[in-house]
Amino acid sequence: MTQARSSLIPPGQAGTFHCVQRCVRRAFLCGVDRYTGRSFEHRKVWVEQRLALLAECFAIAIHAYAVMSNHLHLVVQLEPALAQQWTDAEVAARWIRLFPPREGTPAAHERKRDALMADPTRMSAARARLGDLSWLMRCLAEPIARAANTEDDCKGRFWEGRYKAQVLCDDRAVLAAMAYVDLNPIRAGMADDLAQLHHTSAHVRLRGVSHDATKAMLQPVAGSSVACLPIRLGEYLALLEWTEKQVRPGKRGSIALSAPSVLAKFDARPDRWVARMKSIGSGYWRAVGEVQDLLEIAQRLGQRWLKGVGVAAKLA
């Protein structure tokens, strides 16, 4: 039975989440549509540009993303408390960047800003929305849908009505979700190795990597500069490279012997890592974490259990 998103993620709650937004039409979001032969590859740039803007406006940190043919993945950390620290002028400026006046002139921007700041109720609502996951996904999906419908010369839904959201309960769940998202193109057969992971957060990290950078702590690819995980960039990239060899068809490596040492920080048995990472997509549903984490969320939702409890027990 479908439940309100607020039951799983109460408004104002901080946390890290894995979100999936899917296209509802057979026409592709991006890539080449095998039915019509049309290329929509340029739309991947739309999504990445929109994500960059949202990261500058919302109280978030983007840890991973992947733009696929007909859906997109996002691992995002919400920091609603950060929005509470912004001045009214900062909140108004960020809100108007998201929803600019139709005229688009400096005078129109100034009028809209002044009107917003003069209304405490609207200011409070805007501040809360800049730390809200549903508003983040709305501000990501709607402009892309309008642009795609204009380009396709059609009307109607472009995205599915609801996006999928998973609560990532601990660092191990966050790391598994990030690797799942970054390696999505390889599992889908769209890329052969890390060098071909275009339009993903892995590509962003690889593009800016240097010898010194690999020693730095892993940071978000966009948004607030909160520490992502207690590992270094080089360790994460090494983990991606090793995991890619395990998930690519016909390219099995020696899991027990060659697993990166960083895995020991998160799992005493590295041979379970690939199963843990793959379970993000099919083993879990509303939340990813330990058995107790899932049972507590189930209780809050008024359920006896939550999909993924069995997987969590096997991987414990």
Rank of each mutant, 00 (worst) to 15 (best):
D192W: 08
G308R: 00
A298C: 09
G302F: 14
A141K: 09
L168S: 04
R22Y: 02
L239P: 02
W305M: 06
D153L: 12
L175F: 00
V291P: 04
Q166C: 06
A165R: 11
N184C: 09
A259C: 12
A216E: 13
Q219Y: 02
I231V: 15
E160V: 14
V181W: 01
V76R: 01
A213N: 12
P230E: 13
R304E: 11
C57S: 13
R157A: 14
V309L: 06
E290N: 01
R162H: 15
S282H: 12
M277S: 07
I60L: 14
L263I: 15
V309H: 10
A64S: 13
A191Y: 10
V262S: 02
A128P: 02
L133C: 02
L194H: 14
K307L: 13
F40R: 08
R162N: 15
K164V: 07
Y163T: 07
A177P: 13
L54G: 07
D170F: 09
V309P: 06
R138W: 06
L183F: 13
D171F: 00
C19N: 09
H73D: 06
E160I: 03
L72E: 06
I186C: 12
E142M: 15
A61I: 05
A227N: 12
A313L: 04
R207P: 00
S39E: 10
L54C: 05
V226F: 11
F28N: 00
V45T: 13
S210H: 06
D293T: 03
R25S: 08
L315Y: 10
S261W: 06
L54K: 02
I280K: 01
V47M: 12
G104T: 12
A179Q: 13
R26G: 00
M277Q: 04
A27C: 07
L295M: 05
V76H: 11
G308H: 02
A216G: 14
A216K: 15
